[in-house]
Design a protein around this nucleic acid. Structure first.
Lengths: 161, 161
DNA sequence: CTTAATGCAAATCCTTTGCATGTAG
DNA sequence: CTACATGCAAAGGATTTGCATTAAG
């Protein structure tokens, strides 16, 4: 599998995956490399079977089990996460940073946040429960100032309905 | 199924479910009622099988398929939603205001939490940004105590799977 | 009466595993 | 050489479906 060693080398995730393998005494292999590479090249979420098809498309003869096994490694190494897919499990790249955001339910605006206070909270909870926590998502759904103003105005003007 | 018609009548979700049935020309039935009632009485998320066990505990002889079929109705009617559970799909009431949970990345265990501290944090953020917030999701990903122990042990005996 | 709902078991997915064999280190 | 990785097929689980039968409206 020499096809794109350059791209591999440039992607920090690849390095991280290699480190993960080494740290567990696991080995490199052409099929494994292909699966990982195609998974990385995919932006959104993907099911095991979709990934398998994409892989077979490049190198026929690779077994589904290999895809599943590699996917497990990706999850274990923290480079992938599972997420909802209709009916079947989907996998998506896990970004390093934690994600905090506030979403306006009226206009749909999404604002990315960085909340050190949430880090503290997270630590406290983890401690209390005996967990270790590596990542978090804090999504808040509500209304943005602009939409709140608009609503307030609409209230006055249209007295009732 | 007269056991708790009073409780049923008081829960607005029940009314909504009945409307949903009527709008589709579907029928009432004792088993269906039981499944819905037990689902509603459960606060957190639950798997189809767990729900089945709880149902059988009250009235033995009810089939899993009935539980699955009812669960689908609940989802279709917007009263339930699916969510991640270890390996298997879990269901939870859709109306639940906020969801806080901690998920083990090793065994997939999902623990539902109730975090008043997060409410405070949420309020503070909202205030600062001029938003109102009505709902939140706080997902934390890490490792549970059991898996942490297992890992510590596995450290000695070189890992494979 | 008409037609949906149910229980049961068989059928379908989706995912994991056992095993003989290939292969990286 | 020594494990680990792989393909294949069989095994496992979870969820769905076909069908005869029961029961709601």
């Amino acid at each position: 599998m020499e096809t794109s060693s350059i791209r591999k080398k440039r992607d920090p995730r690849w390095t991280r995956f290699e480190e993960f393998l080494r740290s567990r005494g696991l080995r490199h292999s052409a099929s494994r490399g292909l699966v990982v590479e195609i998974f990385f090249s995919n932006e959104g979420s993907i099911s095991a079977e979709e990934l398998w098809l994409a892989v077979k498309n490049q190198v026929p003869g690779i077994a589904v089990s290999t895809v599943y096994r590699t996917l497990r490694l990706l999850v274990d190494s923290g480079l992938a996460r599972t997420c909802e897919g209709q009916g079947t499990v989907h996998y998506e790249p896990r970004s390093k940073a934690s994600r905090d955001r506030i979403i306006c339910m009226d206009c749909g605006k999404v604002m990315d946040l960085d909340l050190p206070e949430a880090d503290l909270l997270q630590e406290r909870i983890a401690m209390r429960l005996g967990y270790t926590v590596e990542q978090r998502e804090l999504f808040m759904y509500g209304r943005c100032p602009a939409c709140l103003r608009r609503r307030a105005l609409a209230m006055k003007n249209a007295g009732r309905y």
